[in-house]
Design a protein around this nucleic acid. Structure first.
Length: 818
RNA sequence: GCGGCUGUGGUGGAAUUGGUAGACACGCGGCGUUCAGGUCGCCGUGGGGGCAACUCCGUGGAGGUUCGAGUCCUCUCAGCCGCACCA
């Protein structure tokens, strides 16, 4: 007997070579060519930096399992790969080393490509691209121009987030707890002219369409919160002294009669005008100056005591004509609503706190609760004879109607979502295709002149303006309109722009005439299954949805495509010793080391076996070794069976051991199939294959026949293929001589799923007292009689009165006694 | 503060519609193979009691519904995540 040793270093490259030579995973654009349905399976594209880390191994292991399962379920599967290759890490690396970001990025891309092949991920490499290639970003620029011409991209001066370490502005979405997402530096507010996408135009659709996509509920909730739609009213408060009307937004017009003061944000343009000439002028000026220099973090501290300054002026409450004193206070934000509020201390906690500090009157207008402030529902009081006594929700409607009739207000909706600030004062990004001409002003670069190629420069360091500004012969250009002298826009685009449409480009990756052929999109879009980290819940995933809706409106997408990702799966993190892996903690487990030691199959399988893939899981070396041992046993059993056991068919009349093995095989088919199509419970799928192997193993020690053993082991290989493709292909080939990926996904034979008997659980008062084999077709009375005969059941029935009999067919009998 | 998720052996985790809690694996222990270690194979492994048959307890905690609850309901504790002066 030959010695059989599982050797992934021999097995894995062999199959990788077959798949590469035969272009196995390539799929042509060929709608309906052979009648198979199409499926688009996509994992979020990697940012190529250094080497792949273990999170990459996990996301592509999950995605590859889905892709393989879809293929063998009869679908044509698009499963491409690309690189999100513009961005700050490559640029920061360039600043430190002087090496062009393109070089370090290309080196990283090579390392990613090599490792993805070594992992055996089934990718259609013909569609590969990097977003930093002119062939790609040419079309990023084209999309920008489409949005610009539709008024969805615009340049505007605004108070924006400035990251003093990265020396660039950031989008709202990239500021976390007042700090830059990457740098961790406290963000400053600067008044700057920047490029924006008008994502707020799409707020309602982005919100409403969440209902139609199959995404994890928590991700939808995060998007809903981020969009932050609130319904209410805009109400006019008049300042007679200055002859100005101020609009305020309120969600509680039912509490208008309880307003006792009025507050403006420090940034409100009228604050100093109002205070001018009053005794409060100096104090107000000092307060505003102090507020404007506060960091976002200080400003946002909820527990900080309320502060503010009276402005010495009043506005008139439109519902009762009362004069309300105006204050400036930093708890009112300029960027939400109108930057001015009516304050109702009796029914708003913040207004209440402020009123306490400054001794302002508190007037209850809603009944309910023991103490103020009371923010719940209740009947109106102290308001107006027309409304007092009405429930506040009804009163709200009536007051709104009254305001509308009187021209003093109207229903209104506010959003937390801000427009997407896309310009960055950095080098390694997609140039914004705009030139500025003294004669013609802002001029878009005509589509036929794209791409605007990113020039090579010497000095990448940010200086508070884009490093591109130093590339004088690039900046100086001619106006496409008048041929006069003009200067290029030197800011580059946020890399999230690049990744907001890459999944469209895969469908038609090498089109030189257009960003895509709509027919190609019609074949594949939307992405049927998208897989990635939850950290992109409101950045990438919201931006991509906006792009699709805008492009659909502009007529660039096939009918019916309104969402990029029909289903989303968010995978959890792999931690080590309970902590996120990081170089500073020294707890990084590089995939390359794992693959070197155990092979890719073990690495992929263990990562999927460790727990449900949507949850975080802790890496354990001994766990990985356990998986290696399992794959070794399976492979060795297949090699031995191939050598020693005659190639008999499945026996027609199997003996008892064969039958157990065959039943287990069909049971495993059913279990794995269910795990694949439902919640991606790959951990239980792999466990089912392990159970199958264990059954075969004990069957071989017994009397199982060669045909049954061969079938069961081949089935184990077939079921394991989506997770461990190399060893599974080997196992299947050893036993059948054929290629497992060319076989359809196995179907369980119902005849093997049900036995002639089952184990009847016999309970007395809900406690298990015995178990007995019972015929599968036994009726209720037979089962009851059988249960009552069992010795331990009889012992517990003895001396008691039987009051109830419960029978669950195929499962159990419960006898209730007193 | 608001919203969401998660609590099951020494560990990671299983458990269709409420129906045998702890599948599968790690770890640990025993036996065999081996000069030995490792590998490999077999057996055992929630806790307490008992020689055993068996029995009591057990899914963060407290109640409840039910013949029967890890699963459903109410309250509560802990951990993680998201949002947070959004009017």
């Amino acid at each position: 007997m030959a010695e059989h040793r599982y050797d992934p270093k021999r097995i894995e490259p062999r199959w990788q070579q077959v798949w590469a030579d035969e272009h196995t995973w390539e799929v042509a654009n060929d709608p309906g060519a052979d009648g198979r349905d199409s499926a688009y399976v996509l994992e979020m594209l990697p940012y190529p930096s250094g080497e792949p880390h273990i999170g990459h191994l996990k996301v592509y292991s999950v995605g590859d399992a889905v892709a393989h399962f879809q293929r063998r379920s009869g679908r044509r599967v698009l499963h491409p790969m690309g690189y999100d290759a513009f961005g700050l890490p490559a640029e920061n690396h360039a600043i430190q080393t002087g090496r062009h970001p393109r070089e370090s990025t290309n080196a990283a891309i090579e390392s990613f490509q090599r490792q993805f092949r070594e992992w055996g991920i089934s990718i259609d490499w013909t569609r590969e691209f990097a977003t930093c290639e002119p062939e790609y970003y040419r079309w990023t620029q084209w999309i920008f121009l489409q949005l610009y011409e539709a008024g969805l991209a615009y340049k505007h001066e605004a108070a924006v987030n400035w990251d003093p370490v990265e020396e660039t502005v950031l989008a709202n979405e990239q500021v976390v707890d007042g700090r830059g997402e990457r740098s961790g530096a406290l963000v400053e507010i600067r008044q700057l002219e920047q490029w924006f996408f008008r994502i707020t135009d799409y707020a309602d659709r982005l919100l409403d369409d969440l209902g139609g996509i199959d995404w994890p509920e928590h991700v939808k909730t995060m998007q809903r919160n981020w969009i932050g739609r609130s319904e209410g009213a805009e109400v006019t408060f008049r300042c007679e002294a200055l002859d100005v009307d101020y609009q305020v937004f309120t969600t509680r017009p039912d509490t208008l009669f309880g307003a006792t003061f009025f507050v403006m944000a420090p940034e409100h343009p009228d604050v100093l005008k109002l205070a001018a000439g009053t005794e409060h002028e100096a104090e107000a000026r000092a307060y505003v100056n102090r507020a404007l220099t506060e960091s976002l973090e200080e400003r946002g501290d909820v527990d900080k005591p309320k502060t503010g300054v009276a402005l010495g002026q009043t506005v008139t409450n439109p519902v009762n004509g009362e004069e309300l004193p105006i204050y400036v206070a930093d708890y009112v934000l300029m960027e939400y609503g109108t930057g001015a509020i009516m304050a109702v201390p009796a029914h708003d906690e913040r207004d209440f706190d402020f009123a306490q500090v400054y001794g302002l009157p508190v007037r209850r207008v809603i009944d309910g609760g023991d103490e103020l402030p009371y923010t719940g529902d209740g009947p109106l009081v102290n308001s107006h004879p027309d409304f007092d006594g009405l429930g506040n929700r009804e009163a709200l409607q009536r007051i709104l109607e009254w305001l509308d009739r009187e021209g003093k207000g109207h229903p209104s909706v506010n959003y937390r979502l801000r427009d997407w600030l896309l310009s960055r004062q950095r080098y390694w990004g997609c140039p914004i295709p705009i030139v500025y001409c003294d004669a013609c002003g802002t001029v878009p670069v005509p589509a036929e002149q794209l791409p605007v190629v990113l020039p090579d420069i010497e000095d990448y360091a940010p200086k508070g303006r884009s490093p591109l500004a130093a590339a004088e012969d690039w900046v100086a250009t001619t106006c496409p309109n008048c041929d006069g002298p003009a200067r290029r826009e030197t800011d580059t685009m946020d890399t999230f722009v690049d990744s907001s449409w890459y999944f469209l480009r895969y469908c038609d990756a090498h089109n030189d005439e257009a960003a895509w052929d709509p027919a190609a999109l019609a074949e594949w879009m939307p992405v049927d299954q998208y897989i990635g980290g939850v950290e992109h819940a409101i950045l990438h995933l919201l931006y991509a949805r906006f792009f699709i809706k805008a492009l659909a409106d502009l007529g660039h997408l096939p009918d019916g495509v309104q969402e990029p990702f029909a289903r989303l799966f968010t995978q959890g993190m792999i931690t080590k010793d309970g902590a996120k892996m990081s170089k500073s903690k020294g707890n990084v487990v590089p995939p390359r080391e794992i693959v070197d030691r155990y092979g890719a199959d073990t690495a992929r399988c263990y990562i999927l076996f460790i727990g449900p893939p949507d949850q975080d899981a802790d890496w354990s070396d001994s766990g990985a070794e356990g998986m290696f041992r399992f794959l070794s046993r399976l492979w060795r059993a297949a090699a031995e069976a191939a050598e020693e056991l005659p190639d008999h068919p499945i026996p027609d009349a199997p003996n008892a051991d064969s039958l157990r093995v065959l039943r287990k095989a069909h049971w495993a088919i059913e279990r794995v199939t269910a795990a694949m199509s439902g919640r991606f419970a790959f951990n239980t799928a792999i466990a089912a294959v392990q159970e199958l192997y264990n059954e075969v193993s004990s069957g071989r020690r017994g009397d199982a026949e060669p045909g049954a053993v061969r079938f069961a082991l081949a089935t184990a290989g077939s079921l394991l293929f989506p997770f461990a493709p190399h060893v599974s292909a080997d196992v299947f080939e050893l036993l059948t001589g054929t290629r497992v990926w060319e076989e359809p996904w196995p179907a369980a034979d119902p005849a093997y799923l049900e036995g002639d008997t089952f184990e009847l659980v016999c309970q007395v008062n809900g406690k298990v007292r015995d178990r007995v084999q019972a015929p599968s077709d036994a009726d209720r009375d037979t089962l009851l009689a059988l249960a009552r005969e069992q010795p331990n059941v009889r012992a517990h029935l003895d001396g008691h009165e039987l009051v109830k009999e419960i029978v669950v067919p195929g499962k159990l009998v419960n006898l209730v006694v007193r």
